[in-house]
Nucleic acid binder design. Structure first.
Lengths: 238, 238, 238, 238
DNA sequence: GATGAATGAGGTTTCATTCAT
DNA sequence: TATGAATGAAACCTCATTCAT
């Protein structure tokens, strides 16, 4: 009669307690997801590590996948908060007439430090984003895009001010993002940097060099079949 | 992570047949692993897509994981082949006194094109490497390191020849690798480039800029606890 | 990526084997469903009784519910087969000018014997029909309606021939059906009849009496709110 | 079927409060049990609909099953009350020398109206009786038997008075009961009757016809193996 | 060598019931 | 007495793997 009744809400009523519980479980899950991956981690393991019974986990989350999504969104929020602060800071410093190069470097540093703080989640993103619903994936990627957009804005401001040459701002921002993220996702290749600040100081010239490079303007034309390069990919593309 | 294998060898005797079968199955698996992930793909699906019975798959591979490993190693081999060619080419051109900058650009281009050809597997690497045994992971990463080493050698040659300033060659190579790989793993952000060559020509100045940047020399001291930066990671680190 | 992939077909390929297996499992399930009910019966129990492993059950059926539906439909088919025979027989005897009363009694007897043969399933129907999808329920009830329609036709033929008075043929058929079904669903109250034929011979006069009764013609007007009799039923009505 | 109860008494001391609470919960449960079935209804849903907490439900009932039993018994009581009234009325009218046929019809009508009032529970009985303990089942069925016995007595009185022919009074009562219950359990086939009284007036001639039918006397011999008709039923028989 | 049915361990999820607050 | 979070057993179902044919 009632087919497919899905429990839509968490069982725990008290908002504060609910969030605390979620945090606790998610924290336990994060570690396990990272070593071993999302699919290889059982809810039983998560519960155990969080010091709860299996059933209790489902009082806080309605599904295992929700735990993964929670991890991503919570960090997304964290990133967006930082972004907001950065924006404010950027406007403030701009008004003070600070050198665009310094502005970029400040912005970039704070992005890289964010990556460092959330290193585990950055890696998780690269690994397990595809385990989410397409809708959920999009939500997360939109956040990422907003981060990149900010770098683009800072770069564009530099162009306006004559600090950087015009060019493919979008590409430059992409490169900068990727180099920051590599601190997390390719950390094994950067083992000789002890801390993010070591990496950053080594990277400084390279990063600014990218910004100052005179590249071609972008060909902002939406290609009809952007992906028509001979591949027979079936659906995906993450 | 570690598991006990029952049957250690494949059931198929004829070497040629065996390899053909493996290729066929792996090809089918590759697509499925990419859209859907390794864990969500069942052996039955793979068998079906390969036009075989479930049982047959296990005549060619001893486990599902072996299929994944096969995919990685086969591509590793492919990459190492390319690397060997590149090395030969590099020596030849070096002997002809070709400009180190051109040498680097040639090497880099061919690496990027390799990434492009194996785009699906590059993504797969970022996503599913952790699904392998630690030993297997290491084997794959060693290949990756060899690729980076080649770039480092080319860069070093440029330094010797006075084309590039001295500096952290290791870091530069890392950056170059990451930017090439981003064509695969962050392709959604590069949608406005139709083909790898479009991306490459836009990237050329940036890449060479990185090579020519005057960075600090590396502090080649192996840190005792390179990872002692406050994290409580348990085991892994990919 | 692929969300909600439902295994749509049974795993067993060989048609004959598949059917045999289904029969075997369904037979085991039938008994268990009857004592204890559908929900209280676990798949493990079914498997055990059928002499199979749990997994194997799901090679034959895609879900537990399918077992229940299989039971219902298979008996539905069985009933429809009998119905077809009855129809043929009816036409044959009608052509021979057999007395309508005898025709009715023959038809009724064979329906009652069918009920007897499928007694367990008749009970199951009363108990567990609601455990099916609404669509599936409808399919089963349509079969039941066809059975009743046949009785109505036989009754109508008797009316034409002057053997029975006109009246609410639909109601009469309903009464006859219910009395036959009561042999299954209220068997505890009929314990003093050893066999269906005992019950039938005792019931003969009553059944024919019903047919011969002079009832009012039916008020075949579709009532606007047929159910507006003060109840606050929420949805169902089986 | 049989289970171990932990707590044997309800937690609520005040008798009045206890009963009020039980009624409230049972009322909520009744609707849910009907649409959806006993097993598919969770205690949480019941609590929610009753406007209580889950814990409170278990202050009033010691188990979910007890709710079901409560529903059945409360209606059983209701039925027995009506029965008592009917008995009194019957004696009164008998003393007044009322026509036995009228007596039967009055008694039958009031039974049918009872069924109508408790339609939901009649259906529930057919569906979920088996979810009770065997002992509980028996208690409920005994009540049902008492109801039938009354009809038998009324019929017997008619026989004594020469209004009905002798015959299988037990069978006749059974038939009458079943036809009344069909208003509830096979309501879908009687949709063209808006109200129970419509059904009753259409049924009147049939019902009285049954009473007046000249059937065989019953063979009241307890059969040794009453069920020896080839079935392999294991335990139950509802 | 190929097949595919059988297996059973283990996955996620539900839910009646308990019990500290 | 009321609450609702915690529990853990047990449910359904999936799937890699085996093995008789």
């Amino acid at each position: 009669m009632l087919r497919k009744k899905r429990k839509l809400t968490s069982q725990v009523a008290d908002e504060k307690r609910l969030l605390e519980g979620k945090e606790r479980i998610a924290a336990a899950a994060a570690g396990l997801f990272l070593n071993g991956g999302y699919h290889s981690t059982s809810v039983r393991e998560i519960a155990q590590k969080a010091g709860l019974s299996v059933g209790s986990v489902f009082n806080y989350f309605t599904s295992k996948e929700e735990i993964l999504f929670f991890l991503f969104s919570r960090n997304q929020e964290r990133a967006q908060d930082t972004l907001r602060e950065q924006r404010a800071e950027f406007e403030r410093l701009k008004a003070q007439g600070v050198d665009p190069k310094d502005l970029l470097w400040l912005a970039y540093q704070s992005y890289a430090r964010l990556i460092d703080e959330m290193r585990r989640y950055t890696v998780l993103g690269y690994q397990e984003l595809k385990s989410l619903t397409v809708a959920e994936q999009r939500r997360i990627l939109e956040g990422e895009e907003r981060l990149q957009q900010f770098l683009e804005e800072v770069l564009s401001y530099g162009v306006e001010q004559g600090a950087f040459p015009g060019g493919d701002v979008n590409l430059k921002a992409h490169c900068l993002m990727v180099l920051a993220q590599s601190w997390a996702v390719r950390h094994w290749a950067l083992k000789h940097f002890t801390k993010i600040d070591d990496y950053l100081s080594a990277l400084k010239k390279i990063a600014l060099g990218i910004a100052e490079e005179r590249t071609f303007a972008p060909h902002r034309i939406a290609m009809v079949a952007a992906d028509a390069n001979g591949y027979d990919f079936e659906k995906s593309e993450v």
